[in-house]
Amino acid sequence: MTRTVDDVNVGSLLRGWRKLRRVTQLELALKADSSARHISFIETGRSTPSRSMVLHLAEQLDVPMRDRNALLLAAGYAPSYPETPLTAPAMTALRAGLDQLLTAYEPHPALVMDGMYDVVAANRGVQALLDGVADHLLQPPMNAMRLTLHPQGLAPRIGNLGEWRAHLLERMERQAALRSSEALHGLYEEVAAYPVPAGATSSGPAVPACGHGPAAHPYALPLRIEAGGRVLSFISTVTTFNTPMDVTVSELAVETFLPADTETATALRTAR
């Protein structure tokens, strides 16, 4: 689901976010300690919200930081949050910290992605999974979703491709809706249209890893992937920054892959 707005006045934008969050004017008013009448006046343009009111309403609607800037601009105010390129000198400490984190996580795979799932950093554990991937998928910016689901990417080696593909597509669709991102929705449409590689199933039971079936990991869906002649099994976690004050930082996510069984843990240790 995506949001389409014909103009850029702050009232229509706020109305779009309110409807996207499935909140009534009265519910938003109660959350914002305002009145439904005032919310209605803002949405129809009869009242111009203050800068603090724009940010307050955006907070109640859980509007992403990038779009909070867009709301401020539409209301005639300067953006509140900077967007600093990750390569900027001001980000040196952040880059060093992320590199240290990724290195410490080895030999387990770990990577950092931006809001479009482009990989901005990865460790050697990820590199070890990329054998056989087509060169065009490895060109920067390397996109994690294309890399995983493209028939010339990791997809042919994912034993439970049907389950993992469904998980990734649902994750992307949810993020596209929460962020109201046309670009992310376009990426979703692209990867969802990729053909399922020959020999792989689009649905059905997962291929067991090291003799264990799907029921071996009832607490989380594992990624089962062939690498180095073995089927490795991973549980992924995604970490974001708790209190970002920059658009770039707010959209970064660190994804790490934990061994889901002792065989995978052993294989990673012996491969170092």
Score class of each variant (00 low, 15 high):
Tyr188Leu: 13
Val249His: 03
Met245Pro: 03
Val207Arg: 11
His217Arg: 13
Glu189Thr: 12
Ala209Met: 10
Leu223Phe: 07
Ser180His: 08
Glu255Lys: 00
Ala253Pro: 02
Val238Ala: 09
Ile235His: 01
Leu232Lys: 01
Pro244Asp: 02
Ser250Leu: 05
Ala206Ile: 11
Ala216His: 09
Leu252Glu: 00
Leu223Trp: 05
Thr239Ser: 12
Leu232His: 03
Ser181His: 05
Val247Glu: 01
Pro197Asp: 07
Val238Met: 09
Pro218Glu: 14
Val249Thr: 10
Ala192Tyr: 05
Ser203Leu: 06
Leu178Thr: 01
Thr256His: 08
Ile235Arg: 01
Gly228Tyr: 14
Thr240Phe: 05
Ser202Ala: 15
Gly229Ile: 08
Ala206His: 09
Gly211Thr: 10
Ser202Arg: 15
Phe241Gln: 02
Ala220Tyr: 11
Ala220Asp: 13
Pro208Trp: 09
Glu189Pro: 04
Leu232Thr: 02
Phe234Tyr: 08
Pro208Thr: 11
Glu255Gly: 00
Ala200Tyr: 02
Leu187Ile: 08
Gly213Val: 12
Val254Gly: 00
Thr237Tyr: 09
Cys210Ser: 15
Ala183Lys: 11
Leu232Arg: 02
Glu189His: 10
Pro244Glu: 02
Gly204Trp: 04
Ser180Tyr: 04
Phe241Met: 06
Glu182His: 12
Met245Val: 14
Thr248Pro: 02
Thr240Gln: 10
Gly204Pro: 03
Ser250Asn: 05
Thr248His: 01
Ala200Glu: 04
Thr248Phe: 01
Thr237Lys: 04
Leu187Met: 09
Arg230Ile: 08
Pro197Gln: 08
